[in-house]
Nucleic acid binder design. Structure first.
Length: 320
DNA sequence: ATGGTTTTTACTGCGTC
DNA sequence: GACGCGGTAAAAACCAT
């Protein structure tokens, strides 16, 4: 976790340095100055012209088809990324005036009203497509980072689509909702990932994920029961490289704990981690608390507390 | 916002290799 | 002496109200 964070930071620094690098003259190392008027970049020390002709290079000189021409053309309104369609869709003004500012007749007004309505429908439909495309890309990216199977991704997609259809998006970020959808899907599929793990691969902060998740679950009426501690066991077991035996015992411990009602209110992940530790102990396979803590992201203290409770519960279950 | 519960952090003592 | 483990107190995070 800290690994990725520090790596990101150094990445940023190196790109920043590279950028600064480019602002020095390759000949003498002096500062480069942009001469806006002449469209040149000039070294302030030796006068070397590093780049010229920035302002107008003339039109692209060939295009083989219409699409390419569109792409290469330098004319037209500037595009913006702040709008879903980059501001390129048709806009119909709300005033019933023609291009000269004269009022429209009633027949024309009705016509414009109809046009407005349909234009708006197509436009929002379009925006949903784009929205969806981006969200699904995010979901896919995060899912592979977390090693979640395709069926989880599909579930997540479905959840996201529903959220979109029910207009849950306004006021929330696409990524936040996408992340929440994935989190929910993983839990529903019985292969949960903790909020921490999720937020590590998401571009969204943990609190926002949690908030959005709660909201989405409530609004869509998703039935998600508290995560079953047992569902974490296989992952911990394989991360620690311990035997099947340990896994079996861990499940067993969790079962008796559940019967005894030990586990209400406690973090399922903590329970699972403790069960795996206790099971390893019972099976005489060496695993330290810190190792378990490492793979489960649960503090050693919590593991200690839980696994005592687990063992007690087990003894009680055997005694009477 | 508040209070109760759980988890984490930080520290200390004990036994073993 | 380092390591694994256990316990504790205080801080932080979480949750329901």
């Amino acid at each position: 976790m800290t690994d990725t964070r520090t790596r990101n930071r150094t990445d940023e620094r190196t790109t920043a340095e590279e950028e600064r690098e480019e602002h020095h003259c390759p000949e003498c190392g002096g500062n480069l100055v942009a001469d806006e008027e002449r469209g040149e970049t000039v070294c302030s020390e030796c006068g070397l012209v590093v780049d010229e002709g920035q302002i107008d290079r003339g039109p692209e000189w060939r295009a083989f088809d219409a699409a390419e021409k569109d792409e290469k053309s330098r004319v037209g309104a500037p595009t913006t990324n702040t709008m879903h369609d980059k501001g390129l869709s048709t806009n119909i003004g709300w005033q019933d005036k023609d291009a000269y500012g004269n009022s429209l007749g009633s027949r024309q007004r009705e016509k414009m009203q109809r046009l407005r309505k349909w234009n708006e429908r197509f436009r929002t439909r379009d925006s949903k497509e784009r929205n969806l495309k981006q969200a699904l890309g995010e979901i896919d990216r995060m899912a592979s980072a977390l090693g979640l199977p395709t069926n989880v991704r599909e579930t997540a997609s479905v959840i996201y689509r529903r959220a979109l259809d029910e207009d849950l998006l306004p006021g929330r970020s696409i990524e936040g909702v996408a992340t929440s959808a994935l989190y929910a899907a993983a839990r529903q599929a019985g292969t949960p990932r903790s909020l921490d793990e999720i937020s590590n691969v998401s571009r969204v902060e943990k609190d926002e994920i949690a908030r959005t998740y709660r909201y989405v679950v409530r609004e869509l009426g998703l039935e998600i029961r508290p995560a079953d501690p047992k569902s974490y066991v296989p992952r911990f077991v394989s991360d620690l490289g311990v035997s099947e035996e340990v896994e079996r015992r861990a499940r067993d411990l969790l079962d008796t704990a559940t019967e005894k009602g030990i586990h209400s209110g406690k973090s399922p992940v903590g329970l699972a981690a403790a069960a795996v530790y206790a099971a390893a102990l019972l099976s005489n396979e060496k695993v330290t608390q810190s190792e378990v803590s490492e793979v489960s992201d649960i503090s050693e203290v919590t593991i200690r507390n839980r696994y005592h409770e687990l063992l007690e519960a087990k003894e009680d279950a055997l005694a009477p």
